[in-house]
Amino acid sequence: MGKQALTTIFLLLITAASASAETEMADTMRSNGKIYVVVVVLATIFAGIFAYLIMLDRKIGKLEKENK
C-alpha cells in the first residue's frame, strides 16, 4: 500500500463525487425548500380535482336513485 495507491483511490473518490454532481439537477430548489411550494400547489390542484370528482360521483348517484 504505497503512496501511489492511496492517491489513486483518493483521485477515484474525487472523480466519482464530482461525476455525480456534474449532472445538473434542481438541487438549489431542494436545498432552500422551494420544491415544497411546487408540491403544495400541485397537491392543492389535485385535491380540488378529486373533490370535484367526488361531488360528480355523488350527484350521478342521486340521479341514478331518482331514475330507479
Partner: peptide, 24 residues
C-alpha cells in the same frame, strides 16, 4: 385518491437518478 396524492408529493421529493439530458 391516496395513490395519486402520494405520487404528486413523492414524485417531486424522492430522489431520482442523476442522468445527463434527462436531468429532473
Amino acid at each position: 385518491i391516496i395513490l395519486c396524492m402520494y405520487v404528486v408529493v413523492a414524485g417531486f421529493l424522492l430522489p431520482v437518478p442523476r442522468l445527463d439530458i434527462l436531468n429532473e
